[in-house]
Amino acid sequence: MRKFNLLVLNEWLKISKKRSNIIPYVILLVLSLAVGYMTRTFAADMYASAADFTADSLQPRGIGQLLAILVIVGTAGIVSREYSQGTIKFLLIRARSRTAILASKYVTVLLYTLSMQVVATVGLFLSGAVFFGLSGGEAGIGEILTSLLYSTVYCTVYATIGFMLGILTKSTGVTIGATIFATTIDKLVISREFYKYVLFPNLNLAAYKDGGAPMQGMTLTFSIILLCIYMTLFLLAGFAVFRRRDVA
């Protein structure tokens, strides 16, 4: 386990030692303030408190999509850049299995996703506190955590798609492009029976709040099972290819 933690530390350092690593966090904070300010200016009575504001804005319909894009941009290169830089050679001639190395990269992607979520939540809450005040409103810590959970699920699925694409294509650019494109079309609804088995309508679990559903005949359990199946497939494909591939 210690060995694995050291692998994760390595991956985390590779990301965080980049000087540009601070930028997405700054963007999140600035954006939180901007959203708070605009809402306050144009729809002053929309939220009664910081908790209301945070719980609502954090969802995939709120800043969730941007959060997903930032996560993708931050982690898309975690595998592909090793290939393009040529560092993959030194990485793979160590007494560590390819599975362990790739798993440490995936854990790092998850940690990165989580860190972005936390910063976004804190940023939104601060912004909410400034523009809407702390007292009043209906939402509490429970609502904020629920929103955080929905947002994390949404971003994690996209991070996993990016992770797989990075392995399959070995191209950071293609990975970022394809995954961001997916985030822009995932809110489309095609009213056909088959569409509920597609990944996209199942991504936003927040849609089930207050008894709603993205499409007729879909339930929260259905979506969760489907997301699990998709994630498993993505990861299996990524690990299978990475373990077997010739590094030339």
Binding site: L6, L13, K14, G86, T87, K89, I93
Partner: peptide, 26 residues
Amino acid sequence: AIIENPEFYPHMTGYDNLLQYLRMSD
């Protein structure tokens, strides 16, 4: 081993690069 050109993480120092490999060896 060194296989063809030695490539390292360019945004990290030589020391940090070596630390990476040290963490991967027993």
